[in-house]
Amino acid sequence: MTMTPPIATPAESFELEPIADLSDADTLRANRQTAIYVYEAPVRLWHWINAAAIMVLVVTGFLIARPLPSMPGEAAFTFLMGDIRFAHFTAGYILAVGLIGRLYWACVGNHHARQMLYIPFWRRQYWRDVGNQAAWYLFMVKYPRKYVGHNPLSQLAMFGMFFLGALFMICTGFALYSQGEGAASWQAKLFGWVLDLAGNSQNLHTAHHFGLWLMVVFVMLHVYAAIREDIMSRQSIVSTMISGWRMFKDHGQ
């Protein structure tokens, strides 16, 4: 998809419309800073819907595994577990359908939309960059490198923890769901093999529960890294997933 950016670069916009409170020092700096449009609207929309779905899935998933204290009253008037499970299944469908839509966008969107789906395993430079980024996190280098898309460590986490993790949760999740739907359901036809692989239903439940913790760990790392890098790296991170623009704080390599 080609998109006409609202402004060519921030630098150009200053010529059109001077900033009211611009000091000389700010002007120098503002003219050096650049921005690149990275995340297209469908990617951003997907990201936030997905984030909401995962939040619901983690909370309801945990409550399904460890239910709330027993409800008072007659069973006929309460449907708490039913509602929690409904929320879980609905969010699960949103996650699955969202991922299909996201895969479609990886095909038709810009090249940044594909970065999450693989790691350039055979490229030596990639692993050198991973090392550099790890060194940055270990306070061993003074400045990180600049990246337009994901930094290499982030790409590793996106692919290894999020993308493969989400696939794992979708496969095990639908296999579990198919147990209620029955052997003739499309869920059982598509995902019944997961139950065979797990050996029995309890192992499958356990695997899915491990996946919950994997997702919790991923979210923790992801949110922390995004906020930290928004502050400490040389480019914008959090606002990029809102506006789509990656803004660089300096002109250096």
């Binding site: 239910p67 409800m71 006929a76």
Partner: peptide, 11 residues
């Protein structure tokens, strides 16, 4: 099962 769906459990 209705007790499960209602969230009513033996503790």
């Amino acid at each position: 099962r209705p007790h499960f769906d209602a969230g009513q459990f033996v503790e």
